[in-house]
C-alpha cells in the first residue's frame, strides 16, 4: 500500500484521540468516517463540526463524517482505526467483527491491558475478529498539541509490512512522523508499563524527594521494564524508541497525566480504590501493576519498584517507607540491560 492513496478510513471511537486521528487522516484521505456510539452526539458533531466534549472548538474538516452506524463506518474502509478505552475493547471488537472482513487492516490506538485477562489490545482484536493484519499506533501523542499543529511523531507496529506501510501512508506528514516497528508486543507493553513509571514519579514528586530521586526511580524503573521485555520476547530497541522512552518522557514529565496524579494520591496514603474514585477515570497504571505482579511471580523476576508500588496501592503500605526500602537495597553493578 506504499504510496497508494487510501480512499476510505473508518475510525471507531470519537474521543479526543479518535477525533485527532480523524483530522490527521483527513489530510490524506478523501473519505474519513468517525464512529460515536452515542447517536445524539454523533449527529451533533456531524452538524456543528465540533466535538465539544473532547476537542472543544476544533473544527472538524468536511471530509470527516460522523455516524453511529458502525457498519457504515467500517464496512468498506481499507483501514479501521480503533480508539476506545481498553476495557471497552473486547465489546467493541465483537461489534466490529459483525462487519469487518479479513482484507481490512485493523489498527488500534489504545494503551492498556484488558483487566480480566491481562491481554494486550491486539490480542483481543485477534481473538474477537477474523482480521489477521492488525497493528497498534502508539507514541508520545498529546492530542491537544497535535490539533494545535505542533510537530509530533508516533509508531505503527505490526507484524505485517503492508499494515505499517498503509498507516504510514495514511498518517505521515511533515508535522506528524510515523515510524514503523515489527515489535507489536514491545510497543503495546511499553505503552501500558509507562503508566507505572508515571505513578512512581507522581509519588516521588509528592514526597518531595527531589529531582535526583525521581531520576533514580525512573532509570531503575526502566531497567525493570527491560527485564520484563526480555521475558515477554519484546525488543530493547522498542524500549529505547519513540513508543518507549519517547512516551515515558512525555507521560512522566507531565503533571497533568492521570497516572502522575494517581501517584500523588498514593503518596498521600490513599489506596487503589480511593485513588480510582478520586481520579474519576481508569488509572491504567494500577491495573498494569496487578498484571505485572502476576507475571513476575510466574517468571520469578525481581522488580523492586513495581513491587513497592503494588504494596502501596493494594496493601496500604506507606509510600515513604517503601521508597526507603528501595533506597536501602545495596546496589551491585549497575545493570540497565
Amino acid at each position: 500500500m506504499r504510496n497508494r492513496q487510501i480512499k476510505q478510513v473508518g475510525i471507531v471511537g470519537a474521543g479526543q484521540w479518535g477525533t485527532t486521528l480523524a483530522w490527521l487522516c483527513s489530510l490524506k484521505c478523501e473519505d474519513v468516517r468517525l464512529y460515536d456510539y452515542k447517536p445524539e452526539r454523533a449527529k451533533l458533531i456531524q452538524q456543528t463540526r465540533k466535538n465539544k466534549d473532547f476537542t472543544g472548538d476544533f473544527e472538524i474538516p468536511g471530509n470527516v463524517s460522523v455516524h453511529s452506524d458502525l457498519e457504515h463506518v467500517i464496512g468498506s474502509a481499507q483501514i479501521i482505526l480503533v480508539v476506545v478505552p481498553s476495557q471497552s475493547m473486547r465489546a467493541t471488537a465483537k461489534a466490529i467483527s459483525q462487519f469487518c472482513t479479513p482484507s481490512q487492516y485493523l489498527v488500534h490506538g489504545t494503551k492498556g491491558l484488558e483487566q480480566k485477562t491481562h491481554k494486550r489490545m491486539s490480542e483481543v482484536l485477534l481473538e474477537e475478529t477474523a482480521c489477521l493484519r492488525v497493528g497498534v499506533l502508539s507514541g508520545p501523542n498529546l492530542a491537544d498539541e497535535i490539533l494545535n499543529g505542533l510537530p509530533a511523531a508516533s509508531v505503527i507496529a505490526s507484524r505485517f509490512d503492508e499494515v505499517i506501510e498503509g498507516v504510514q501512508n495514511l498518517l505521515s506528514s511533515p508535522r506528524f512522523l510515523v515510524f514503523g516497528n515489527h515489535d507489536i508486543v514491545g510497543v503495546e507493553w511499553v505503552g501500558t508499563l509507562k503508566n507505572i513509571l508515571a505513578l512512581a514519579t507522581g509519588m516521588i514528586h509528592e514526597l518531595k524527594l527531589g529531582q535526583n530521586t525521581q531520576a533514580l526511580i525512573l532509570t531503575r524503573g526502566i531497567a525493570e521494564i527491560e527485564l520484563l521485555f526480555k521475558k515477554l520476547g519484546a525488543s530493547s530497541e522498542t524500549l529505547l524508541g519513540l513508543a518507549g522512552l519517547g512516551d515515558i518522557f512525555a507521560t512522566c514529565t507531565s503533571q497533568q497525566s492521570r497516572n502522575f496524579r494517581a501517584g500523588v494520591l498514593l503518596a498521600q496514603g490513599q489506596g487503589a480504590v480511593e485513588v480510582q474514585n478520586q481520579v474519576h477515570a481508569t488509572v491504567e497504571g494500577l491495573h498494569t501493576i496487578r498484571a505485572v505482579l502476576d507475571f513476575k511471580d510466574e517468571h520469578k523476576l525481581d522488580l523492586p519498584i513495581i513491587e513497592a508500588l503494588g504494596r502501596c496501592a493494594f496493601q496500604g503500605k506507606g509510600a515513604l517507607d517503601e521508597v526507603q526500602k528501595i533506597l536501602a537495597r545495596i546496589p551491585g553493578l549497575e545493570k540497565v540491560v
Binding site: M1, R4, K94, S97, Q98, T101, P102, S103, E127, E128, T129, A130, L132, E162
Partner: peptide, 19 residues
Amino acid sequence: LSRNQAGRILNLPDYITTD
C-alpha cells in the same frame, strides 16, 4: 466454510488480497 467469531461466513480470498 470458515466463519468468524460472530458467525459470519468468511471470504478467504480476502486474506490474500492486498491493494
